[in-house]
Design a protein around this nucleic acid. Structure first.
Length: 582
RNA sequence: UGGGGAAUAGUGUAACGGUAGCACGACUGACUCUGGAUCAGUUAGUUCUGGUUCGAAUCCAGGUUCCCCAGCCA
């Protein structure tokens, strides 16, 4: 992972640090953590990772790398009702694909359950926590509102002994789900609702994907998260904006544990625990897509897409299947920057990063998506020849290959017009164009079916233009891609458009939600495509540029007998813009 | 109406009291065996009102707008 440093904007050598890196740099300068930097990416395994997570991974891993620190991958698996091993597996694969290196630190918050439990007991003993028997609805009522203070739970002033006994019985499974909670005794009138005696533990009799049936009480995120970071020695706990309101609570919890503890470990409670610093940044939003796990889960569960890795999804697995490269994603993360206010990044910027990388790295190949048959009347029947083609004009080391030419070819249907408008430079009756790396051809005849549709073209070729250049120096205005009919391989090609028709999918009329803005044309499957035979040897996820069309990759479901390609992104198409303008 | 955050071209960001810059997009043009790529250029901005200062995007005061918080989710 060599891109993705925290610089962006102006060139010129001097680094411009994003605000998080600025804090880290300042902390190093002031020796706040003895020069140490330790970050982490803490996903909950309740869904697949998306491009917004890539921003966070890139930030956290990038900081650790840039400042010579460490980076942990830690699953925040405190809710067995939503978490599954499938998600754990996909997250590991995606983080690795993005290039972040956690070395041997693949960690799980649930592995700290015993320690968290012991700290909870400690808080009870210090009179800072109590077992509450209010049900969910009562708890809400007692909490008050944004403008009105809450009121104390009637269970707030139990004795330490009774709290200890009840909490232990909660742990042993004596009570049903929801019957009791352990709460922090803070302030029911606090203006920050998170501090109105927040729940630390709830009873959930559920099998945990990792801990099995060892526990039936599970820590709340607020209680668990700060301690996970503390235990791992995280110096900079980087998270998104919505947790800003929670920071005072994490601080309170750590301070509560540290109350009575000492730097040297003397005294009844022992040594103070590490108090990480939380820094919040704005999550990523992008045009024409949704980015919440809840909404993505709906798209999957309700069948709007084929799965989490549907190439139209903004998930890492979807983008990978679509043909995105990790380099492109990383460079995108670098360009968008980091800040503290909500913004929506133009999808075009991601596509720009994609094309920029793919242009440099993709082998060129010829494929015809919507074939139109061409017969070269003056080319000998039964003859064929192999012509030299450049694999990647951006990379001389990619070399050349041979492409077969013969009497019968396919060209792209839209490269021919019987009555061409002024700015149309491609093939038309009587007009001469170049077939890439082959010959100049001139259209002499148009064959139509009974309905008047063009079904075949007859052309002549100029043998002197072999390879694509005319010895007499004459020019043509267009170069077309083509495949030799007898040599070509048939393939299926899937074309993707934005999943939503609106920049902001949530902008739906009254009573409807984002699914109302799903793009009915987001997937088009072409089954009559022809590709050059070299593609028979391509492997899943191999990336190519189909000349003049765009970047494509081999779908994982593709087989040598039944080739399937996904269009990653089209080439910039100035002809399409001319057409649009009329 | 409580508390916590935040506002710079169409979009995303930089400028840390001293010429408001970069990228994407859009638009011109050049070049081209991909109407690709590349190159050159144009476009367009400090939320508002005051104040401090020789000088304010930056400091101060007040206003406006936007985001987050009332899960036994994270």
């Amino acid at each position: 992972m060599d891109s993705g440093s925290g610089t962006n904007g102006a060139e010129g050598g001097e680094r411009k640090l994003d605000f998080v890196r600025q804090i880290v740099a300042d902390d190093i300068k002031t020796d706040k953590w003895q020069g140490k930097v330790h970050t982490r990416f803490p996903p909950e395994p309740n869904g697949y990772l998306h491009i917004g997570h890539a921003k966070s991974i890139n930030l956290n891993y990038g900081i650790a790398r840039d400042f010579g620190g460490k980076f942990n991958l830690r699953f925040d698996d405190t809710n067995p009702e939503k978490e599954e091993q499938e998600y754990v597996d996909s997250i590991i694969e995606d983080v690795r694909w993005l290039g972040a290196d956690w070395e041997d630190r693949l960690l799980y918050g649930s592995d700290y359950f015993q320690q968290m439990h012991d700290w909870a007991v400690e808080l009870i003993k210090k009179g800072k926590a109590y077992v509450c028997e209010l049900d969910a609805e009562q708890t809400r009522a007692y909490r008050g509102t944004l403008t009105q203070p809450g009121k104390d739970s009637p269970y707030r002033n139990r004795s330490v002994e009774e709290n200890l006994d009840l909490f232990e019985r909660m742990r042993k499974g004596e009570f049903p789900d929801g019957a009791k909670t352990l709460r922090a005794k803070i302030d029911m009138a606090h203006p920050n609702l998170n501090l109105r005696d927040p729940i630390m533990y709830r009873i959930v009799h559920e099998h945990h994907h990792r801990q099995g049936d060892k526990w039936c009480i599970y820590p709340m995120y607020d209680w668990a998260h700060g301690f996970e970071d503390s235990i791992e020695g995280i110096t900079h706990s980087i998270c998104t904006l919505e947790f800003e309101n929670h920071r005072p609570l994490y601080d309170w919890f750590i301070d509560a544990v540290n109350d009575g503890r000492t730097d040297d470990g003397s005294g009844p409670w022992g040594k103070k625990i590490h108090h990480p610093q939380q820094i919040e940044f704005a999550r990523l939003n992008m045009t024409y897509t949704v980015m919440s796990k809840r909404k993505l889960l709906r798209l999957v569960k309700e069948g709007y897409v084929s799965g989490w890795d549907d190439p139209r999804m903004p998930t890492i697995s979807g983008m990978r299947r679509r043909g995105y490269s990790p380099e492109a994603v990383r460079n995108f993360c670098k360009l968008i920057g980091v800040n503290k206010f909500n913004s929506t990044v133009d999808f075009a910027l991601l596509e720009h990063c994609l094309r920029e990388d793919l242009n440099k790295t993709s082998a060129r190949v010829m494929a015809v998506l919507r074939p139109l048959k061409v017969v070269i009347d003056n080319y000998p029947e039964g003859q064929s020849e192999a012509l030299d083609a450049i694999n990647n004009p951006e990379d001389a080391s990619a070399g050349t290959r041979k492409v077969s030419f013969s009497r019968e070819l396919y060209i792209e249907r839209e490269d021919f017009m019987e009555e061409p408008p002024k700015k149309f430079f491609r093939l038309a009756p009587g007009r001469e164009v170049r077939l890439r790396y082959a010959y100049f051809i001139t259209c002499t005849d148009v064959v139509k079916d009974a309905d008047g549709n063009v079904v075949e073209l007859h052309c002549t070729y100029d043998p002197a233009t072999r390879g694509g250049d005319a010895p007499d120096g004459r020019k043509v205005k267009a170069t077309l891609h083509w495949v030799s009919a007898p040599h070509a391989l048939k393939a299926q090609v899937k074309l993707y458009e934005n999943l939503f028709t609106k920049e902001n999918p949530d902008d739906a009329e009254e009573g409807r939600d984002f699914t109302a803005n799903l793009n009915p044309n987001s997937l088009e499957t072409l089954t009559e495509c022809y590709v050059e035979p070299s593609l028979a040897r391509a492997h899943a996820l191999d990336r190519f540029q189909f000349e003049r069309l765009g970047y494509f990759c081999v779908d994982p479901d593709s087989t040598p007998e039944s080739l399937v390609f996904n269009r990653t992104v089209g080439l910039r198409d100035s002809w399409a813009r001319i057409q649009k303008k009329g």
